[in-house]
């Protein structure tokens, strides 16, 4: 009886927007912490990440689709393209904080960061290369040979290339977000609007999927919980089948990895196919099909304000944009699908 009361109290507390101190234990969103990495390996991986020799025609590096300088770790395109301008089907997710995802790719077919690298390097619409060629090309570079010998104590192999790049990716954690500071006790780190947005984020139920330290990325979910998304957006693209492409189970049809919202404000367009051009549109679509609700504009703004507070720092510099373009009226149009 007593436990029930406690539970009720806890639940009640949870459902009330609270502007007071935060109890991390019960918060669905957790602050980001840097991962332990091998610095030398990460440095080598960084070199490789920006090396266009990984692609067949020396034109594309990892940074091409995952621009960590200006594009928040993505490329700002609905579909990424590879060598010779070959367009792919997928919208590049951000490389930032990707180390915290339970799997890589929208369908989760790569279980680790290392495994993910195979996709772009050998993908026809991406780097269109073969590992032996990559290895040979890197072997021709004396500096790489020395670097690999230093870091791995041996020669250049595909596995080592992947490990190095993955190690670098593990350094791409955007710690120090304002919201994280708020979670850790700094009540003034975010605006009241953002706090309200957070409360709404929780009460609407967005946290059902977008939770954890990465605000998502730790489960698979079907796109179309409360409504049939793909009935309304018919397509025969392979990518739309989602996790079904990996497991072949009917229950995994249209199931995708829940993306992280940490840098959502930086990585438009949205969804697996980049079909949502604006953040507001994305949120509205999500609410309709996942929550079965309509979110009024006022609440949208608050949520967007909250989302802006999630953006952290990289290499000491905040990635949070100065302009709140997603709060601009032109990006709030109601004519979103």
């Amino acid at each position: 009886m007593l436990s029930r009361v406690w539970i009720a109290l806890a639940v009640g507390w949870l459902s009330i927007a609270h502007a007071g101190a935060v109890d991390l234990n019960v918060e669905p969103i957790q602050p980001l912490e840097a991962l332990p990495v091998d610095k030398a390996r990460a440095a080598l991986g960084r070199k490789l990440f920006f090396d266009t020799r990984l692609s067949v025609d020396n034109s594309i590096s990892c940074a091409h689709c995952h621009d960590i300088k200006d594009m928040g770790g993505a490329d700002g395109l609905a579909h990424s393209f590879g060598v010779n301008g070959r367009e792919g089907e997928a919208n590049s997710p951000t490389v930032f904080n990707a180390a915290l995802n339970l799997a890589q790719f929208w369908d989760g077919r790569a279980a680790s960061l290392e495994a993910q690298i195979d996709g772009p390097v050998t993908g026809h619409a991406e780097m269109a290369n073969r590992w032996p060629a990559v290895v040979a090309r890197l072997r021709a570079d004396a500096e790489y040979r020395r670097a690999f010998r230093r870091v791995f104590g041996g020669g250049i192999t595909a596995a080592r290339i992947k490990r190095a790049i993955a190690e670098f990716e593990r350094t791409l954690i955007t710690t120090g977000a304002r919201f994280d500071r708020y979670l850790l006790g700094d009540t003034n780190a975010i605006s009241a609007e953002a706090k309200r947005g957070y409360a709404l984020f929780k009460s609407y139920g967005c946290v059902a999927c977008h939770q954890g330290r990465n605000v998502g990325g730790n489960l698979f979910q079907v796109l179309g919980v409360m409504g049939d998304y793909f009935a309304d957006h018919p397509s025969d693209r392979a990518i739309d089948r989602g996790r079904f492409n990996v497991t072949g189970k009917a229950e995994d049809m249209h199931v995708f990895k829940v993306p992280s919202l940490r840098l959502a404000v930086l990585t438009a367009p949205y969804f697996h196919d980049g079909s949502q051009r604006t953040l507001a549109g994305a949120i509205r679509t999500m609410a309709r099909y996942q929550l079965g609700r309509e979110i009024p504009e006022r609440d949208l703004r608050a949520i967007i304000a909250f989302l802006y507070s999630l953006v952290g720092e990289y290499q000491g510099r905040s990635l949070e944009p100065k302009e709140r373009i997603w709060l601009a009226p032109e990006n709030f149009g109601r004519r979103e699908r």
Binding site: V11, L14, L102, V207, G212, R213, N214
Partner: peptide
């Protein structure tokens, strides 16, 4: 289930 925990990070980590 009993709402003692609010996020799946631990579960995901443990599952992995």
């Amino acid at each position: 289930f009993n709402r003692r925990l609010a996020h799946f990070d631990d579960r995901t980590r443990d599952a992995a």
